[in-house]
Computed example of a mutant assay.
Amino acid sequence: MFTTSDENGILNNFANEPDIYYAAYPTQQQQRGYLVQGVLATLLVMGLGIITVLIS
Protein backbone atom coordinates (compact mmCIF):
# COMPACT_ATOMS: atom_id res chain seq x y z
CA MET A 1 0.00 0.00 0.00
CA PHE A 2 1.26 3.45 -0.92
CA THR A 3 0.73 6.16 1.74
CA THR A 4 1.21 9.92 1.39
CA SER A 5 0.60 12.81 3.75
CA ASP A 6 -0.25 16.42 2.98
CA GLU A 7 0.89 19.63 4.73
CA ASN A 8 -1.75 19.18 7.48
CA GLY A 9 -0.56 15.67 8.31
CA ILE A 10 -3.61 13.97 6.77
CA LEU A 11 -2.76 10.53 5.39
CA ASN A 12 -3.92 9.17 2.05
CA ASN A 13 -3.70 5.43 1.41
CA PHE A 14 -3.61 4.13 -2.13
CA ALA A 15 -4.12 0.48 -3.05
CA ASN A 16 -1.68 -1.36 -5.32
CA GLU A 17 -3.03 -1.60 -8.85
CA PRO A 18 -3.29 -5.13 -10.23
CA ASP A 19 -1.40 -6.12 -13.37
CA ILE A 20 -3.41 -5.70 -16.58
CA TYR A 21 -4.01 -8.73 -18.78
CA TYR A 22 -6.15 -9.31 -21.83
CA ALA A 23 -8.82 -11.98 -21.96
CA ALA A 24 -8.30 -14.85 -24.38
CA TYR A 25 -11.01 -15.67 -26.91
CA PRO A 26 -12.81 -18.90 -25.91
CA THR A 27 -11.88 -22.08 -27.71
CA GLN A 28 -14.36 -24.08 -29.79
CA GLN A 29 -14.86 -26.48 -26.89
CA GLN A 30 -15.62 -23.64 -24.48
CA GLN A 31 -18.03 -22.08 -26.99
CA ARG A 32 -19.90 -25.38 -27.29
CA GLY A 33 -20.06 -25.58 -23.50
CA TYR A 34 -21.53 -22.07 -23.32
CA LEU A 35 -24.07 -23.01 -25.98
CA VAL A 36 -25.12 -26.13 -24.05
CA GLN A 37 -25.45 -24.12 -20.84
CA GLY A 38 -27.57 -21.52 -22.63
CA VAL A 39 -29.88 -24.17 -24.09
CA LEU A 40 -30.28 -25.89 -20.73
CA ALA A 41 -30.97 -22.59 -18.96
CA THR A 42 -33.56 -21.67 -21.60
CA LEU A 43 -35.27 -25.05 -21.24
CA LEU A 44 -35.31 -24.68 -17.46
CA VAL A 45 -36.87 -21.22 -17.56
CA MET A 46 -39.42 -22.27 -20.18
CA GLY A 47 -40.29 -25.38 -18.18
CA LEU A 48 -40.79 -23.37 -15.01
CA GLY A 49 -42.98 -20.92 -16.93
CA ILE A 50 -45.12 -23.73 -18.32
CA ILE A 51 -45.49 -25.32 -14.88
CA THR A 52 -46.46 -21.94 -13.41
CA VAL A 53 -49.15 -21.44 -16.08
CA LEU A 54 -50.49 -24.96 -15.57
CA ILE A 55 -50.67 -24.60 -11.79
CA SER A 56 -52.40 -21.22 -11.79
Score class of each variant (00 low, 15 high):
38 G>F: 11
33 G>L: 15
15 A>S: 07
9 G>Q: 07
13 N>V: 06
6 D>P: 04
16 N>M: 07
36 V>A: 14
7 E>V: 11
8 N>V: 01
28 Q>F: 13
28 Q>P: 02
14 F>V: 02
24 A>I: 12
23 A>S: 09
36 V>S: 01
10 I>L: 06
13 N>E: 05
15 A>M: 04
21 Y>R: 07
16 N>Q: 07
9 G>K: 01
23 A>E: 13
5 S>F: 12
14 F>A: 00
26 P>Y: 14
18 P>T: 02
25 Y>N: 09
23 A>P: 06
10 I>S: 03
10 I>C: 06
26 P>V: 10
25 Y>L: 12
37 Q>H: 07
19 D>P: 04
18 P>W: 14
14 F>R: 00
15 A>T: 08
10 I>G: 00
32 R>Y: 15
19 D>C: 00
24 A>F: 13
25 Y>H: 03
7 E>W: 11
28 Q>S: 03
5 S>E: 09
18 P>R: 03
30 Q>F: 15
10 I>N: 04
36 V>Y: 14
12 N>Q: 08
16 N>E: 10
9 G>E: 10
32 R>G: 07
35 L>G: 02
19 D>K: 08
12 N>E: 06
13 N>M: 03
24 A>G: 03
13 N>C: 02
14 F>E: 02
35 L>E: 10
10 I>P: 00
11 L>C: 00
37 Q>S: 11
35 L>S: 08
22 Y>F: 15
27 T>G: 08
33 G>V: 13
23 A>T: 09
39 V>P: 02
18 P>G: 02
8 N>L: 07
24 A>E: 15
17 E>P: 02
6 D>S: 01
25 Y>F: 14
22 Y>Q: 07
23 A>K: 06
